[in-house]
Structures are given as C-alpha cells and as structure tokens.
Nucleic acid binder design. Structure first.
Lengths: 228, 228, 228, 228
DNA sequence: GATGAATGAGTTTTCATTCAT
DNA sequence: GATGAATGAAAACTCATTCAT
C-alpha cells in the first residue's frame, strides 16, 4: 500500500508531539528531554531529528499544535453558537471555562510555553492572527449589543468589553493554574457574567444566562478565547 | 569593622539572587545556567553552592525573593492609601499596573516561575498567605462599598467584585507579557474601572477616578494584587 | 553482520571495566577519575553513563568483574586437579600464590576495593556464595584427609584446617601487597605446607609436595581461595 | 600561662587526627573531606592547614598515628608478658585478636589506608622498622621453642613459624573485615594455636593454651603484630 | 593565632545530536 | 527509513586551599 508509510510517518509525528505535550504538562519544559519524549512516544531517538530536525523544532511544533487545537475548537464552537451576540459571547466564555479546555494539562502546557521566552515569540507569532479573528468576533458581538442598547459607542464600550472579557478569562485561567483543586468553574462564569450584566443589564443576567432569549441547548464542547 | 564580612556575605547572596532574576527575565529559566549567573553577579562558581547549596535552591530563593518584593511593595502602597474603599482599590489597581511593578522584567520573571510547576508550588507555599491577606483587604473595601450602596450583599457581590478585579489584573499582566510594546496602562486601568463603574456606579467613574471624593494626590508608585 | 553493534557494545563495556581496574591498580581508587578511565579506554565521556549509568556503577561493575574472574579461574583450576584431596588443596594453594593470580595488579585491586566499605559490601553480596562454594570444596578435601588419617574429626580439625589455610593465603596476599619486591612465592607456599605437614604429616611434606602420590604434572595456572 | 597555648595546639592536632580516623573508619577515605573532618573535630577550616599544612599531610599524620598506636600497644603488651616463648607468642596472638585491637574501627582504618598505595608507602616507611622489631621478637621466641624442641633449625622452622603466625593473624583480620558479625575471636585463636600445636606439640595445646606452664593471668590488653 | 567566606580547578553528570548499522 | 550506541560540549557540583578579618 502506498499511503501506509506516509500514514505511519504522520502517526509518529503526532506521537512525538503528544509526548512533548504530556511531558511539558507533567514535568515542565526543562525536564522535557529527548529521552523523556522518546520514552513516552515509544519511538527511537533518531525519530525526532528525522521528522523535525531537532528537539527545538519539535517543541515548537508541539506548541503550535497545542495552540492550533485550542483555536480550532474555539472556532468550531462558534459555528454552533446561536445568532444573538449574547449567545456567542456566552458560548465563548463557557467554552473557555469548560472541563474540556480548562484542565490541568492544557493550563500547564499553556503557561509552560508562555514562561519561556524562546517559545513565547513563536507561539505569539502564529496565534496573533488567529487571536485577532476571535477578538474580532467578540468585538462584533459587543458592538451589536452596544448598538442594541441604544447608546453610542463613542467611549469604546464594545472594545473595552472585549478586552475586559478576555482579560477576565485569562485571570480565571491563572486562578486555575495556581489552585486547580479549589477552582470553581461556575463561580468563574458567574463573576464574568456579573461584570457583563453590570455593563449590559439588558443582555446579561446575574446568573450568567443569556437574558431575554431562550437557551440555545447544547453545552459548549470546546475552548474559547484566551490569547490576548 | 566587625560586621563587614557578614555584611558582605549578605551582599553576595543578594547579588546572586539579583543575577538569577536578571537572567530569568532576559533569557528564561532554561538558559539561566550557573555560568550565566556567576558572570552576571561577578562572583565565583562555588559561591552558589556555598550560600544556597545548589542552583535549584538559589533559583527557589530568587523566586521567593521576587514574590516577597511584590507583596512588600503592595502592602507598603496600601499604607499610603486613603481611607475610602474606592481609594484603596484604585491604589491597588493603579499600583499593579504601574511602570514600577508591571514591567518587562517583572512580568517575565513572574511568568517564568509560574511556567514550571516545581517553582510554582515552591512560590505558592509562602505567597498564599500573603495573597490571602491582600485579597482580604480588597474584599473589605468592596464590602464597605456594597454596604454604602445600600444593597444587601446576599448575592456575594463583594466577593465577586474582589475575584473579578484580581482576575482582570491578572489578565492585564498576561496582555503585557504577550505584547509589551502595544500595552497601554491607561487603557488597562480604564477597562477595569469601567467594569467597576458598571457594578458600583456611585463609587467608580468611567475615567477610573474615584467618583465623589477629591483625588488623593500622588499616583501610586508600587505594585498591587496579582496572585490569586 | 548483524551482531556487530551488540558485540561492539559489549567490547566497550569491557574496555571501561578494564580501564577502571588498570587505574585502580596503578593509581588507587581516589585517583581513578572519569577522565582517567576514558583516557585509558580510549572512549568517550558519555559512554560511562550510557553503559553503567554513572561512575559509581562502573566501579562496582569492575569490582564485581574482578572478583568473578578470580573465582572463575579458581574453579577452572579445580577442574584440572587430581582426585586426591592433597592434590586439590595443593592446587588451590599454589594457584592462589601463582604469578597469574597473585601479582601487583590483582593485589592492588583487591585491597583497593576492600579498603572502602561501600565497595566491600557490594563485592560481598555476590562473592560470598562463590566463596562459600570454594570453602566447601576445601573443607571436603580436608575432611577426606582427616578421615584417611583415621582420627575422628570430633574436634573440627577439617574445619579449622580449612579456615587456617585460607587465612594463611590471605596473610600471604597481604605480605605481597606490602612488599611485592621481596615477596617469595616459594617461601609462602613452603610455610603453608609446613603448617599443613605438621597437622597432617601423612599427607603433606615439608617441601609442599604431595607426599605419597606422584605429581600430577601441570603447574597450576589460575587463582585459588582468598575471600573468607 | 605559657604552656596553655602550646597545650591547646597539641589538643587541636589530636582532635583533627582523631576526626580523620573516625571518618575513615565510618565513611572511608574517599568520603573523608576537609568539611567532614572539621565538622567532627569541631574546629575551623583553616586549622588543618595551620597545623599540618594541608589535608594530605593530616591524613598521613593520622595514618602514622594509628600505626604508632598499634605498635605501642603491642610493645607494651610484650612488656607484661611472661618469660617463656610460648607466653610471649600467645600474648601477641591473643592481643592481636582482642576486642581492644581487633574491632571495626581499627580494621576499617587499617584496610582503608592499605587500600590506597599513596598511604601505603607512607605508612610502610615508618612502620617497617617497628614491624621488623616485632617480627624479631616473635622469631626469637620461636627460635627458643625450636631449640627447646631439640631439633636443629636447619630447615628454618622458626622463621617459617614466625612468618606463618603473622600471616594467620593477617588472615584473621581480613576475616573480621569481611564478616565482623560472624567473626569468632575464640575460633580464630584456636585455629592459630592448632597450627602451632601441630608444629610444636610440646609447647602449644589444641586449646590454644600454653602447654606445660601455668597461665600467666592477665588477659592481653593491646594489639599485636600485623604489618609484614 | 584562628576563622570561615571565597575561590576556581577539577570532577561527575546530562543531553541534544550524529551516524554506522 | 529507522534504530540506538556513541559523542563531547556544556552543565552542575565538589572540595582543598587561600586569605581578609
């Protein structure tokens, strides 16, 4: 079979990336050695250089992959969101705080990569464009809300709401990082919606539920905005 | 002089800690080698093991020192704050976003140490109590504000405001970490106060200035709340 | 060839062990550094940790090897010995004092490893069983001699002869260690046989030659009993 | 007081030597570092170089001291021995196997120093003369025994008995070194006397007791011949 | 004389990378 | 292509010695 080799090749690449991410999450970047990686992946030493040309590239690829996965989930989530701006924002917030996205592994990985400047630039570089798209979507939603609220957005309320919401989510991630045991997803969501409800009382309720419209059903299954 | 030697000893310890922090800020933890440290400190190799018993301990001590410095500055700042809860909160927010606290060096250090769980737990051990104290002070301020606002705090508004404010600050630090060039302190403060103004319109203005009272004068010169 | 690499691997392991033994014999344990070892072996630094996981393990392996070699030679020697108990004992004594076994290198190595309890216990662990076996063989021989002598062994003559013979050999090794120049193998053998001749006059002569039987021909070519 | 300083000086020298011997006995030579020594001695770092001019010299001095002590005890013991040659030999044998001389500390020290050729030669230099003297005394005793036995010593029986006895003692020390737990002083003495009884039945009994004469009373209190 | 902080040469160890098989 | 033994530069650490106090 022709594609068998190619398929195996991709399988090995993914195994290595997965091994890096597992190790980074469990042991941290500085203890993620080549030996650690190949042991987790169950592959040979040479594989890393064969497929990625070196450890650094592999780690970059893993960082890239992790970020990619995050944003992909996020955009998929938005596809399923309702039309109302409140729904879209709630979906992002709830998604970003969901077990599937906000868990020890992801948080450790995310902060580990951010912690080392070398990788930081690489991650930042590629995630900025995509992050911009997400930011744009949230901003659109808030713009609509502001418009619906009838007040002119001269003072940049939509932009500030966007920035603030993303900052709040970041802050919640940090909470989780530092105290995964005592972190309470419901509380985190409630706080964010409390802030939003204060700014847009007609659109968000204290409960964090979208106010006037009916609930859209399905719980969010994937991540939401993080990188600012 | 008698204490000259003892004094010198302490000086060297501090020099080593400073060198670690400089290196971590500039190069990241994984490139902070013993050679790098002693070169920056202008001291001898053996010194690290003499005073700290190994590189790891030195790095931990540096993390500890950094955290301590942060909380010290923060608490000092609160000593100078006015009596009104608004003033106290504003001082923390503005302090935490001030050049003196929120700068590339500090942010890099802070995130570098958080990036690896080993350092994270080591910092957590001693910083949680101090963080709790700070959090308590902010919570007190918001409680007074809620009380003054006349609404019963059945729904935990004070607690949520505390949590939310700290999360927002965290989010702003992350903003700074990822985009130190385009970060705008004024904007960051404005957004936070916009959220607070929405929740407590009688106490916070959109400008981020304390509403009714006269300004307390001097702008904050030191750090404020971060660790959740 | 298929096994070429595996073969080379084992070759290198052996080269390292040999280098350790050479160095220990010539310079002593404390001057047997990693640099010294790899220089003698003509191999790379990393090899030691690759094959043995550290210098300490390598040194232990060398001690093990040395001990093993000694007992192997000894047991091989006994295979070639005649049937009479005198012959067997003489072979052990002469073998243990032979140039091939009792030489500067071996003695230095033997005492160097014994000098530090760490190595001592490590050797003891595996050599005690073999030593016991050897001791058993000597004891058998003496038992037969005692029986042939017609006296009942109520007083433990065979056991004491065994213990005493081994102690004498040990003592001769120490002689050699301290004065390799003036050590006289013939004299050493003569003294041992003088003691044995005194105890078992019908079986051992002053000359150290087996008394009644004809000589078995070949001179012993390998080591004999030492470890108590 | 004038001699106070001088007295203290000597006290410190002895403390250092004692610390070295303790450490060598417990940890072995290679783990006997300057730090270890001064900690045990409770003295300052500089002391070693002040009094001995360096660690090596101190270790040499300790080896010398240990050897000195051994021979001193031995010679003192002989002063108390009776006149008969049997008594003198028995005193040396029993002394050399006594708890006071043959104990874990001494054996470890003795073998540790022997294990490293550097120390070996240094000890040898000074102990050879004394060892020669001891050897001479034993030889004298055996010569008298041989003479009393009436056989001409053409075949060097006295010399061989001397050499053999010392070798047996050495062998017993090695026994003790390797298996201090199961070592049996009585058995060791019995074996040596069994050999001697076989050679000189008129002078030594199987029990290891001097044959014809009455026992001399006092148990031996100090060491006996070792260094060959 | 005594102290112990400081030094830096030398030691062990780690680890990304290479390359013969 | 895949493997894992081999490499050696660079890392962390040890430790006898020095010397200002």
């Amino acid at each position: 079979m022709a594609g068998k080799r190619e398929q195996n090749r991709e399988q090995n690449r993914q195994a290595l990336i997965g091994a890096v991410l597992d190790s980074v999450a469990e042991k941290g970047i500085s203890e993620t050695s080549v030996s650690e990686i190949i042991q987790r992946a169950g592959l040979s030493r040479g594989m890393i250089h064969l497929h990625f040309g070196g450890k650094d590239n592999l780690v970059q690829a893993a960082a890239h992959h992790s970020s990619e996965e995050y944003y992909d989930g996020l955009e998929a989530l938005l596809q399923t969101a309702g039309d109302s701006p409140q729904e879209r924002i709630e979906m992002i917030v709830r998604g970003d705080l969901s077990e599937r996205v906000l868990n020890r592994r992801n948080v450790n990985i995310w902060y580990a990569f951010r912690g080392e400047s070398r990788n930081r630039t690489a991650i930042a570089e590629h995630s900025d464009t995509r992050d911009g798209r997400l930011r744009g979507m949230i901003h659109n939603a808030f713009s609509r809300i502001v418009r619906e609220a009838g007040t002119p957005d001269a003072s940049g309320a939509a932009r500030d709401a966007t920035h603030g919401t993303l900052a709040l989510l970041e802050g919640m991630w940090t909470d989780f990082l530092l105290h995964p045991d005592r972190f309470d997803r419901e509380e985190a969501a409630r706080i964010i919606f409390r802030f939003l409800a204060a700014m847009f009382p007609a659109h968000f309720s204290l409960k964090g539920a979208v106010q006037p419209q009916q609930e859209k059903g399905a719980a969010p299954a994937a991540p939401a905005a993080s990188d600012s």
